[in-house]
């Protein structure tokens, strides 16, 4: 039974690592800062949660602390990405040429000129 749980835990670890790898890949493939922030926010959150779950299967006595780390990351990871994305937008970071609509700049056209 423990051997079985170990295998499941190990597979979760590998799965999490694969998502981190996808994150690293996406970071290099996405054409603009916003795409990169998206990739960074999503893949690292799921990747870490899978790794933490796997670690919990392999070392059940660590489960409580792993859970705490998971809850913390689940809350802070998207938050830091949002703050970063807002900074990028306010700094007028270059956008991918494919960008279709930009309601944000439409709404903030006057204010950004005031600031300049």
């Amino acid at each position: 039974m423990t051997a079985f749980l170990d295998i499941i835990g190990g597979l979760a670890l590998v799965g999490g690592a694969v998502f981190l790898l996808l994150g690293g890949l996406g970071l290099n493939r996405m054409p603009d800062s916003f795409g990169r922030i998206q990739v960074g926010a999503k893949t690292t959150t799921l990747g870490t949660i899978l790794v933490l779950t796997g670690a919990g299967f392999l070392q059940p006595d660590m489960a409580l602390k792993l859970f705490l780390i998971g809850v913390f990351l689940l809350f802070t990871n998207p938050l830091s990405s949002q703050v970063l994305a807002r900074a990028a937008k306010r700094m007028h970071a270059p956008e991918a040429p494919e960008t279709v609509v930009d309601k944000y700049s439409e709404d903030h056209a006057e204010t950004s000129e005031d600031e300049a």
């Binding site: 670890l13 990169r36 690292t44 660590m62 990028a88």
Partner: peptide, 25 residues
């Protein structure tokens, strides 16, 4: 962009964090 570096840095720290968890296991 500076923002790109910060995103990459964020991802780097999280990967290191999973590294620490792997070592703990």
């Amino acid at each position: 962009q500076a923002v790109d570096r910060v995103v990459a840095f964020d991802v780097l720290t999280i990967i290191s964090l999973t590294g620490i968890v792997l070592i703990a296991v």
